[in-house]
Design a protein around this nucleic acid. Structure first.
Length: 417
RNA sequence: GGAGAGGUGGCCGAGCGGUUUAAGGCAACGGUCUUGAAAACCGUCAUACUGAAAGGUAUCGCGAGUUCGAAUCUCGCCCUCUCCGCCA
């Protein structure tokens, strides 16, 4: 949600922003609705003031009651209209995308994202590297067949040393974030509609959400939803900011409409697993902490020995709640190119306005906090490890930093293959 | 799942139809006193929207209703706590 005052005071700016984002929100109509709402509200308040004043006289002056009854009728009809117009206003405001950073590159989709730099050395092979699907079958570390049997296509099992690799990676990453000042969480994997709305996943990504029947609950698409929602309707002490939170959860996405994008293996699935970074900070510090989260992502990939490139995500590839977004795309040897593994979004006050998360400092200054939502690591990173660290026989070398947690330094290939 | 109790400002807690513009206390902040601190005393102290300001409106878990008027009465819902049952 953007500040409605910005809309009122600078409608052209908001319109240009919508235009840049390719949003079909009708800003002119929204302004007209807001004006009507204000007028109706003004009249309703004036009538309530009359009613309140007169009803105090009623005790001694029964004649006043007749007048108050008249006011009540008029008020009721205005309130009916007001409720309708407020509903429309809220609906329209809900669909308005966030303001964009001026630096955000223009572009219609991910092909127009701007590469900022490349890091790491792309591995060279004296043989044709296999993709993770092939390696997974060879090593029996991912089972998509049985995932589909038990659940549906798009679900899978990490198995044996593959599962151990994931456990080690997810644990190690959480440890690193705690060292950098994050508070560790175990958090709910379901959330109510209000929480999904507040984080901007509704209404924008409604068809991506698994909803439970007969319950006001949905499976989370990311722990961002529950970690940001954690502070809904709270005023945070500015002196205690930033708050840096991390949680490790499964993430559920229907991927409706993305058939054909899936490709081989488990790159795009209905359930994946993610360690998340969430920051609540003062408005003038969100750029700084956006960069902080990016540093953490880069630190993790570097420690794991994965080459990657940093991408400045363009307008068309960014969700409506985003102000600016960086993706890291890891190199996948089997795939033979870079693919998205983490994304890091500065949401400014878009979520905090919807969720009513404020700050207050000791001088009494108040406002809405800014939120940063960034991936730390997901299953995709484990896939990159598998593809990049493969040997000619199909075995996988475990990155140094994970070995204390895996307890082995290599996933051995079965003999005789 | 069964039974009971309860949801009031940062916290505790009064109020049960109209001097509630929510008593009182604690905490916090400012001041007096003091070498300094504590104590004591004086003062300030909810939020949002609206308005140039004075002020106005809304909010006592949420929603609806009764009434000239609701924190207070009625109905529905939500949540929390305690005990019992089941249970990783």
């Amino acid at each position: 949600m953007i500040d409605i005052k910005l809309l009122r005071e600078n409608p052209e700016f908001v319109k240009q922003n919508c235009l840049r984002r390719g949003s079909d929100a009708d800003v002119d109509k929204l302004i007209a609705v807001e004006k009507e709402q204000r007028e109706l509200n003004f009249r309703a308040e004036a009538l309530r003031a009359d009613r309140n004043r007169l009803s105090k006289e009623c005790k001694d002056n029964p004649d006043a009651r007749v007048k108050v009854k008249e006011i009540k009728e008029e008020l009721a009809s205005i309130e009916t209209k007001l409720v309708e117009i407020e509903k429309e206003l809220h609906e329209r405001m809900s669909w308005l995308p966030n303001i964009l950073a001026p630096e955000t590159p223009d572009g219609k989709d991910d092909t127009e994202n701007k590469e900022l730099r490349k890091e790491g050395t792309v591995p060279q092979f004296s043989f044709k590297p296999r993709d993770h699907q092939e390696l997974a079958e060879l090593l029996d570390i991912i089972d998509t067949q049985r995932g589909a049997k038990v659940a549906q296509s798009g679900f899978y099992y990490w198995k044996g040393k593959g599962a151990q690799l994931c456990n080690a990676m997810f644990f190690w990453v959480q440890q690193q974030l705690v060292k950098k000042g994050f508070t560790s969480f175990f958090s709910p994997c379901l959330a109510k509609e209000q929480t999904l709305f507040g984080t901007g996943y509704l209404p924008f990504f409604a068809e991506q959400t698994y909803k439970l029947e007969n319950e006001d609950l949905a499976l989370i698409g990311t722990s961002e939803q529950t970690l940001v929602g954690y502070h809904a309707d709270e005023t945070l002490d500015a002196a205690k900011l930033p708050l840096c939170y991390t949680s490790f959860t499964p993430c559920f996405r229907t991927e409706a409409g993305s058939y054909g994008k899936a490709g081989r293996g488990i790159f795009r699935v209905h359930q994946f697993h993610k360690v998340e970074q969430i920051v609540f900070c003062l408005p003038d510090e969100s750029v700084k902490y956006h960069d902080f989260c990016l540093e953490n992502e880069e630190f993790i990939l570097k420690q794991l020995g994965i080459p990657y490139r940093l991408v400045d995500v363009c307008v068309g590839d960014m969700g409506a709640p985003g102000y600016r977004k960086y993706d890291l795309e890891a190199y996948f040897a089997g795939f033979g190119g870079y693919r998205e593994v983490t994304s890091n979004t500065n949401l400014t006050d878009f979520q905090s306005r919807r969720l009513n998360i404020r700050y207050k400092d000791k001088d009494g200054n108040k406002g809405f906090v800014h939120t940063i939502s960034a991936t730390a690591v997901t299953d995709r990173v484990a896939i990159a490890i598998i593809e990049n660290n493969q040997q000619e026989d199909g075995s996988i070398i475990i990155p140094e930093v994970l070995r204390p947690f895996t307890g082995f330094d290599r996933i051995e290939a079965p003999s005789g293959k």
